[in-house]
Structures are given as C-alpha cells and as structure tokens.
Simulated scan of single mutants.
Amino acid sequence: MTAHPDAGTIFDAAVAELRDTAFRADLVVREIPTPQGLAPFALALAADVRPDDDGDSVYGTGRFVLLHDPEAPAAWGGSWRTVIFAQAPLETEIGTDPLLADVTWAWLVDALDSRGAVYHSPSGTSTKTLSKGFGGLADEGDGAQIELRASWTPEGPFRPHVEAWAELVGMLAGLPPGSEGIAVIGARKAARD
C-alpha cells in the first residue's frame, strides 16, 4: 500500500462539506458508525422521514456512506465511492406497479442530475416487496415496500450527492421536493395492536 499523507486531510474536507449540508425539516439526518473494511476512510449518515419520539419512521429511511481509498480500487474507477440505501412502505396497489423498480432508479438519477452531481460507474438494485400477514400478524394485512441500494463514483463537490440521496429518501416516502409541511401521501402504517 502506497502512503498518501494528504488523504486524511482531503477526506476531512469532504466530511466537513457533508456536515455543513442543510436538510429539509421533515428529514432527520445523523451520523452513524461506518461499515468496517470497505475503505481506509468512511463517513456514514442515516436519515428518517418524520420520525416519532422513539426515532422510528413509518414513512421511510435511508443510509448514505462516503468512502475514500487513495489506492483507487479498479472497481470504483477512482478514489471515492458513494453507497446508498433508501426504503419506504407503500400502499399495496402501488407496490404491484410493474414499473415501480424502474421509476425508483430514475428518481435517483434525476435527483443526481438536478443537483449537478458529477459521477460515473453507477450500479444498484431496486427491490419491491409485497407481504401478507398471517396468524398473529394477520391484523397487519397486506403491505408493500420499495428499497433501493446503489453506489457510484462521485466527482467534484460531495454536497450535491448527499442532497440527491436525501431527496430520494423523501420522494420514496411520498414527499416531493419542496413539500415541507404537506401531508405524506402513499405511505402506510401497519396496525400494531
């Protein structure tokens, strides 16, 4: 491994940029422990849409991880990598839409593009899940969920990347951009009695 004496300083500047990002009021973002072994430098954030007093959200949640490896792994195509996760519950009818997974990926790409985020080497999966409760969970009824896992190699400033992720988390939860203070649509809370 080659020594990169400025790598920590470069990463610290990126972290400062992300920590200085302002998020919409109905999205609570906090730092969480970083995954181990992915890169020499990492920052992880978690977001919850309109969490309750216990910090749980019935609307949607997400994770954002910024990785930095001065050795520039070949699979990344650079020394930086962004890894994200976003999920939200849906009305069952929405969950059966055959284009839902494609639309979810398109929302991520649109969010990145609308912020002017420069990136390459994107990859990911969009998964929709339908469920039905039985036995002790029968009262919860039918449900659906959408989940997106993605990664890409970011270039330039990092704030547009974290803003795009935050927008995606909100959109999956039914919050279009600029909708603060408007009721959430399309989200469903299962009965827990």
Rank of each mutant, 00 (worst) to 15 (best):
M1G: 13
T2L: 11
H4Y: 02
D6H: 03
T9M: 08
F11E: 00
D12G: 06
D12V: 00
A16S: 14
E17G: 06
E17I: 02
D20L: 12
T21W: 04
F23L: 11
A25D: 15
D26A: 05
L27F: 01
V28S: 03
R30W: 03
E31A: 08
I32D: 12
P33K: 00
Q36T: 10
Q36N: 06
G37T: 07
P40G: 15
D53N: 14
G55L: 05
D56N: 13
D56Q: 13
Y59V: 05
F64G: 03
L66N: 01
H68T: 07
H68S: 14
A74W: 01
R81C: 10
T82K: 06
I84Q: 03
P89K: 12
T92S: 11
T92A: 11
I94F: 02
G95M: 02
P98H: 11
L99M: 11
L100R: 09
L100Q: 08
A101S: 04
W105N: 07
A106S: 12
W107I: 00
L108S: 04
L108C: 05
L112K: 02
L112N: 06
D113G: 11
G116E: 12
G116T: 11
Y119Q: 13
S121E: 10
G124Y: 10
G124D: 13
T129K: 05
K132T: 07
K132L: 15
A138Q: 13
D139S: 07
E140C: 04
G141K: 13
A144L: 00
R149P: 00
R149I: 10
S151Q: 14
P154L: 14
P154Y: 10
E155W: 11
R159G: 12
H161K: 12
A164D: 08
E167H: 03
L172W: 06
A173M: 03
A173R: 04
G174D: 11
P176W: 06
G178S: 03
G178I: 00
I182N: 09
G186I: 04
A187R: 10
A191H: 08
D193R: 15
